[in-house]
Structures are given as C-alpha cells and as structure tokens.
Amino acid sequence: MIAIYFILKSLGLTDSLLALIIVYSASSGLGYLVAKGFFDTIPKSLDEAARIDGATQWDVFWRIIIPLSKPIIVYTVLLAFLAPCVDFVFANIIMTSRDTNKFRVAIGLYNMLGRNLVNNYFSLFTAGAVIVSIPISVLFIFMQKFYVEGVTGGSVKG
C-alpha cells in the first residue's frame, strides 16, 4: 500500500478518484490468478470423456467447465464488488484532502463518527451502514445458490 501511494504521488494522482479507479482495476489480476488455480483443479478426464462422446471444445467449455466453475465465478464477482466498497484504509490514504465531494462511502461514514459529530450524526451513520449493506446482502443471497450449486455439482467418480 505504501509503495502504491508513492507511485501515485510521483505521478501526481493522489487525492483523485482516477487513482482509485486505476488501482482497483489493476487489482483484477489477483482474481485471474485465483481463478487459474481453481481451473487447474478441474480434472482433464472430464474434458477427455466429453470429447470421446463427441462434444466440441465449445460444448465442453459451456456444458462442463462453466457449471463446475460457478464457485470461482461467484467468488470473483463478490470480491470485485465488495473490495472497493469496503476498502477504507487505502481510500483514506489516497484521498488526502477532506473535500466531501471526493469522499467514498466508507470514509464518509467514518467521518460521521468523529468525536464532535458522533452525537449529531450517529443515527445517520447507522442508516448509511444499513443502506450500504443492502446491495451487498442482496448480491450475496443471489449468488449463494450458484456457489452451492457449483460446489455440489457432479464430477468424475472414483
């Protein structure tokens, strides 16, 4: 995090939303590495059995690999959605000014808990926290069935 801050500072990108967009977009490589590790665990025998049965490579991908990969797809979607929403520390370091137009949700909610503001804004803070948690909860509930379905899906016996 410190190295990224100094790189952004040398490029003159601190205190800009562009810096956060660049960093969050660049971190998608981690999702790729995790997904690759998952795809490596899918047995080659599934592919070979489907090819012997006459399936094309396209059929193997859409009818075997994708259904078995639902857990990693759901994980990647949830992580890609949640990481920027709840990343308080990094956003607080990059966004050094206190311009309220540049506040992220986590920073704005945290600033409501300041010593001199907590009595005035605590009810707004709790309402904001509930509002932030609603889309995350809905996404998780929607994606959970795909996660469980992918984990319990059939595979090669033996």
Rank of each mutant, 00 (worst) to 15 (best):
residue 24 Y to H: 04
residue 66 I to D: 00
residue 70 K to T: 10
residue 96 T to N: 14
residue 65 I to N: 05
residue 45 S to K: 12
residue 90 F to E: 04
residue 55 A to H: 09
residue 36 K to R: 07
residue 31 G to S: 01
residue 103 F to N: 01
residue 97 S to L: 07
residue 80 A to Q: 14
residue 37 G to Q: 09
residue 72 I to T: 13
residue 36 K to N: 14
residue 82 L to R: 12
residue 103 F to D: 06
residue 84 P to A: 01
residue 47 D to A: 15
residue 21 I to F: 11
residue 41 T to R: 08
residue 70 K to Q: 11
residue 78 L to G: 00
residue 65 I to Q: 02
residue 24 Y to G: 05
residue 76 T to S: 05
residue 75 Y to G: 09
residue 47 D to W: 03
residue 64 I to Y: 09
residue 36 K to E: 13
residue 37 G to E: 04
residue 63 R to V: 10
residue 52 I to W: 14
residue 95 M to K: 12
residue 38 F to T: 01
residue 99 D to H: 04
residue 108 G to P: 00
residue 85 C to H: 06
residue 81 F to W: 11
residue 29 G to D: 12
residue 88 F to P: 00
residue 83 A to S: 06
residue 34 V to M: 07
residue 37 G to N: 09
residue 91 A to Q: 04
residue 35 A to K: 02
residue 51 R to S: 15
residue 36 K to H: 13
residue 65 I to E: 07
residue 98 R to M: 15
residue 70 K to H: 10
residue 90 F to M: 05
residue 55 A to F: 07
residue 24 Y to T: 05
residue 56 T to R: 03
residue 92 N to D: 09
residue 45 S to H: 08
residue 51 R to M: 15
residue 60 V to A: 07
residue 42 I to V: 03
residue 32 Y to N: 11
residue 93 I to R: 04
residue 63 R to F: 14
residue 100 T to C: 09
residue 49 A to D: 10
residue 103 F to Q: 05
residue 95 M to Y: 12
residue 75 Y to T: 11
residue 92 N to S: 02
residue 93 I to S: 10
residue 66 I to P: 08
residue 42 I to T: 08
residue 18 L to E: 07
